[in-house]
Write a protein that binds this DNA or RNA. Structure first.
Lengths: 153, 153
DNA sequence: CTGAATTAGTTTCAAATGTAACTATTATGT
DNA sequence: ACATAATAGTTACATTTGAAACTAATTCAG
């Protein structure tokens, strides 16, 4: 008969730790490009996706960067207003439109990428090369498993 | 003269991966207690802090769970409205008030903790006992390092 | 073909969040 | 002691975000 009271130590609780770590890292990076370039996190991610894989439709973008279509739509609207992204109609399926960076957008992207990589490199200084691989592997497995749990709990 | 174009692979980029993983995990957990108990993530975290360390002042809570004072204030307001948290004035310093769970709040806390721990255990199934330790250690070091970077970049 | 169901994407409205200003109280310097 | 600064916490306002409704175009079933 086990009537033990379970204790939750929030500071050691995995979901909490991941969330706090991710938030700190994401905010620190955001500080780097928000000031000079005035991008939100979602806008930057959309640009990163387009910088690498354009042309993409809005849904493609959403799939790549795990972002729902409303968020993508708003980010794209902002980026188009600033002339960083262009849309060209898809003649085969007129619901779709493929997106790509403008020259101005490409230039901004090319400015930010090295900053982002430098930031990542600085972060990684906390870990050895081997540990970096380990961390990435563990995160990947955890992510895959969490997705499974999500879909049939 | 190195004019190489740097490429950012978002899906392998550490800040991005951490963020997506943390979000998935946090949402999955939230799904478990949001429905039955109608708590937001911040409200749940405040309850978790109080369940373990009460009495705490609002600032104490904020420090423990890395949440700014406005967020704490709002979460506490919601929890008090529902009779889950009580406030008692501090006579030494009348700016402060110490917070603690009511019996009703304690009961809810006692319901949720096992759910949360079970969820964590399910998550951890993706990893061996050794890997869990490794992951926690790596996250901790990364977190400490990221905090350093933040303060003098 | 035609009408129901899907899909892409946008808009709308409400709730959540961040920033700054504000109140009340306590601490500090001279 | 008294003005000034600092601290605890709340409120107000603007911005962001999320969920659901909506428009437009396409697919599919019969």
């Amino acid at each position: 008969m086990s009537s033990e009271v379970q204790v939750l130590e929030l500071e050691k609780f995995l979901p909490y730790r991941l969330s706090v770590l991710a938030q700190l890292v994401s905010e620190s990076l955001h500080d780097l490009y928000a000031g000079p370039y005035g991008l939100s996190v979602t806008q930057w991610r959309v640009m990163a996706a387009l910088g690498r894989f354009a042309p993409l439709t809005a849904s493609d973008v959403g799939q790549r960067i795990v972002m729902d279509k409303v968020a993508v739509s708003r980010a794209v609207a902002g980026l188009m207003r600033r002339g960083l992204v262009e849309r060209s109609a898809d003649l085969d399926d007129r619901r779709r439109a493929s997106l790509h960076l403008t020259p101005k957008g490409r230039a901004m992207h090319a400015d930010i990428v090295p900053m982002a990589l430098k930031f990542e490199a600085e972060l990684y200084q906390a870990l050895s090369a081997e540990e970096r691989q380990t961390l990435n592997g563990l995160c990947e497995r955890l992510f895959a498993h969490a997705k499974l749990l999500r879909n049939r709990p």
